[in-house]
């Protein structure tokens, strides 16, 4: 009886594809409804191997979350560093807290599928839902912490 009722309700609610957004660590703690509202602002894009996603000094307006495939990031932070980003990682959030333009160039290292959101849309979403914003910022801070400590460990390994 219960499953019949669930099925009946599902006729009105439509497919819940948006729940997959929870796989991204940044959105992991958001509720289903929060994810639904977020999904309205997200654009699915595909890039072929070797295709440029953005170049250094381009305006920073879109944040990408990698759904599948790999992206090569070059010239980060004005240097010659190179990094490969994989599934469930993101591009643009670090730059978002730094300035208004990209610090590196991103190229598809394989065929890539991404979820993209405009920076202004994300900010509007956070403004309208501060509790979600707190959860998102918390996840971003965790991400930054692991990035900083990862870099420090790498440096100390190089010095040793």
């Amino acid at each position: 009886m219960n499953s019949l009722w669930t099925w009946f309700l599902s006729l009105f609610s439509g497919p819940k594809d948006y729940l997959r957004l929870r796989d991204y660590p940044v959105f992991a703690k958001l509720s289903s409804y929060d994810l639904y509202l977020l999904s309205e602002r997200i654009h699915e894009r595909s890039f072929s191997l070797g295709e440029v996603i953005f170049e250094a000094q381009y305006p920073l307006e879109v944040i990408y979350f990698i759904r599948s495939g790999e992206i090569k990031l070059e010239g980060m932070y004005g240097g010659s560093q190179e990094k490969i980003l994989g599934q469930m990682e993101h591009l643009g959030i670090l730059d978002m807290f730094h300035g208004d333009s990209r610090t590196g160039t991103a190229t598809a290292a394989t065929d890539v599928q991404v979820d993209a959101i405009a920076k202004s849309d994300l900010m509007d979403y956070i403004d309208a839902r501060p509790r979600c914003g707190l959860k998102i910022y918390h996840a971003i801070c965790q991400d930054f912490a692991s990035f900083i400590f990862g870099s420090l460990n790498q440096k100390s390994d190089e010095l040793d």
Binding site: H43, R45, F47, I53, A118
Partner: peptide
């Protein structure tokens, strides 16, 4: 297209 995606979004 991908080339104009960011521009279009802006």
């Amino acid at each position: 297209s991908n080339r104009f995606f960011e521009l279009s979004i802006i």
